Amino acid sequence: MTSLFNSSQEIVFVLHGLNVTQTNRHIYFVFILILYLFTIFINLTLILTIVLEKMLHDPMYLFLGSLCINGIIGASSFYPKILNDILFDSHVITYIGCLTQIFFIYLYIYCEFTNLTVMAYDRFVAICKPLHYHCIMTIRKVWTLILVTWLFSLLEIIIGIVLTARLPFCSVDIDKFYCSAWAVVKLACVDTTLNNLYGFIFTSYNLSQMILILLSYVNIIKASLRSQAGRRKFMQTCLPHLITLTNFVISIVFDVMYARYGSNTSLLLALGNIMSVEFLVVPPLVNLIVYGMNLTQINCKCIPLR
């Protein structure tokens, strides 16, 4: 099939799925804007609290700070565009704008997975090897893990963007609120085996991270059950991590499976639209609830929110 577009600069993608009436448009805009600002506020509050309080410069809190930074990136990759679309009744995005949105959304996804894996490792060492914790989780090692988390996530998404940017397109209709890699790849006029292989490799990599997390928590739960102090430590430090992880994984898996195999029935379409934005909206929003209110030191230091 011949490409409909000779130059990427001529491409303007049309985003579908956002159905807002003129009457309710400003109500939706105000609600989503408040949600976005509140998400930024609570994540910045946690980040500043961790940075300013020396007693919070422990591995668990430094990893939490990295998670909050990533939450801001995730929220900012989605909210500004949908706010613009609602306010100006615009449902298009340029080629460069689409690739930029894909870059930041998938940077957020990859970094979230890796960050949660590192946090699971930290909790495993803290609960299963408490006497050796400070020897194993040195500050140097913590910052190395954080740096590797971000650099490897950047490498993952750069490869994906390069593979997507090489494709010519025969259509411009994207059946989502925002640009996603698979939605754009499906519009290509050429063979996308390389893109599919890339997706399979990194999906397998993320699944392997999930297996590592599950194995860590099997050992953590076994160790926690041995004493009342262990159970208390599990509830305070591990349960928030499990809540965040479970929510993120379920929404990501549903979005991936629906994008590739879902039908266009009205019920599944509505559910697909909700789940396609859930992992961008909920995890950054609930950081304060699942971490700030469960970790005693964070709860005590978040003075502005008390």
Rank of each mutant, 00 (worst) to 15 (best):
A188N: 07
V162W: 07
R306H: 15
S76L: 01
M257Q: 00
I136V: 13
F63T: 01
A126G: 07
N6Y: 11
V142D: 02
K222H: 05
F103M: 11
M293F: 01
I109H: 08
F202L: 10
I86D: 05
V277W: 00
S77C: 04
F248H: 01
Y79K: 02
P168Y: 06
I42R: 12
Y121S: 09
F88V: 10
T94Y: 01
G292D: 02
L151P: 00
G65T: 08
T2S: 15
G160M: 00
Y261A: 04
Q101R: 05
S3I: 06
E278V: 15
Y121N: 01
V277T: 10
S153W: 04
L62S: 07
P80S: 04
K176L: 14
M1W: 12
A229E: 09
V162D: 06
F279I: 04
A120W: 05
Y133P: 03
F63I: 01
T192F: 02
N273K: 14
Q236E: 09
S7K: 15
T21Y: 11
F13G: 00
I303F: 07
I82Y: 07
S7T: 10
V190K: 11
L163T: 05
N219S: 12
S204C: 15
I102K: 05
V14K: 15
I298S: 04
L167W: 08
F124L: 11
P304K: 04
C98R: 07
N299S: 11
Y110F: 12
L151D: 03
K186N: 06
F177Y: 15
V190N: 09
I252K: 13
S7R: 14
L214Y: 05
L67F: 10
V118P: 08
C238W: 05
N299D: 09
V249T: 13
R123Q: 03
A229L: 10
N6S: 13
F234E: 02
I250N: 01
F248C: 07
L145D: 11
S153F: 03
L155F: 13
V142E: 08
F63C: 00
L187K: 02
N287Q: 11
I211A: 12
F78L: 12
L64N: 12
H91R: 13
I86E: 09
S208T: 15
I289Q: 09
I32F: 14
R123I: 09
P240A: 06
L305P: 04
Q297L: 08
R226A: 08
R260V: 12
S276Q: 13
L239S: 06
I42F: 13
L56D: 04
L52F: 13
G17Q: 09
I73D: 01
S180E: 13
I47W: 00
F169V: 09
Y291R: 05
I50G: 00
S266K: 12
T164K: 02
A126H: 06
D173N: 14
Y95I: 04
R306W: 04
K54E: 13
T94K: 04
L145K: 12
C135W: 13
T244Q: 15
M60R: 10
I136Y: 09
P80L: 05
M137L: 12
L37G: 10
C300R: 13
V142G: 05
L151S: 08
T164P: 07
I73Q: 07
R231W: 03
L35A: 15
G65N: 06
C238I: 04
L145N: 08
V286S: 03
V148F: 02
T237N: 14
